[in-house]
Design a protein around this nucleic acid. Structure first.
Lengths: 115, 115
DNA sequence: TATAGCACTTTCTCAAAGGAAAGTGAAATT
DNA sequence: AATTTCACTTTCCTTTGAGAAAGTGCTATA
């Protein structure tokens, strides 16, 4: 059997995996998804629910998540215009992945810290 | 029902998820795991199998992956000393996660690019 | 004796990410 | 008339990460 192949088709794995990781990794992505999912739908509410996040970063991340179709930015009313953020149903497709990452992470902490 | 809770226990999710992501995200982690998994066990072989990686980065990533118990660095022989890298069986526990990330990523590309 | 190979390390540099702080424009409130 | 709120944007600055290139200490080989 061929040892040391150039693992061509593995690149077909690495690319989509990286796509997926780009969406959920990063310091703020998950906290934002959770915050919106839990009911915070206004910019300032989301900001205040996540200690340490700056408006600049929040604005950028919200745009990102919107582009990835994970949440919607809705303009409500005429004057005063209000903005409302809500999770798209599509965001739920992340749930099983997040929970398997969580389970792995919980176990991993044990693995790494055991002597 | 309580809206806008401070989602306390969600932090218990975010932390281990971040732990897990730290292990597999990054530009080189997965390519290295795959390269070693496929049979490249020498530093230079691994380096040559991954286009663009520099020895500095490879050395750092290998140390990382070793600390996370995903691979082993074995010193072989007396003189000439050879170093051999192999995946730990523990690395297999990542497989289902990687494949679910891949599946999600493949689908996500469709979701984002459809008009 | 000189060169090549192995497994890295060191130094320098640069770009991108991220935080702090202030500003903005419109409307609502006091 | 002045302040506050909302949803951001802008500017400045620092930190971090990564690449390029060269070096290192050892051995093996020609």
């Amino acid at each position: 059997m061929a040892q040391k192949k150039t693992h061509c088709d593995c690149l077909n794995t690495v690319k989509p995996v990286r796509d997926a990781l780009d969406v959920i990794s990063g310091k703020w992505k998950l906290p934002i998804i959770i915050s919106v999912g839990v009911g915070n739908d206004r910019f300032t509410d989301i900001q205040e629910s996540i200690p340490g996040i700056t408006p600049k970063v929040l604005a950028k991340e919200l745009k990102d998540l919107e582009q990835h179709k994970l949440l919607k930015r809705i303009v409500v009313g005429d004057y005063p215009v209000k903005i409302q953020y809500t999770l798209e149903p599509y965001a739920d497709t992340l749930t099983p992945i997040i929970y398997s990452l969580k389970d792995w992470g919980v176990n991993h902490r044990k693995v790494v810290t055991e002597r």
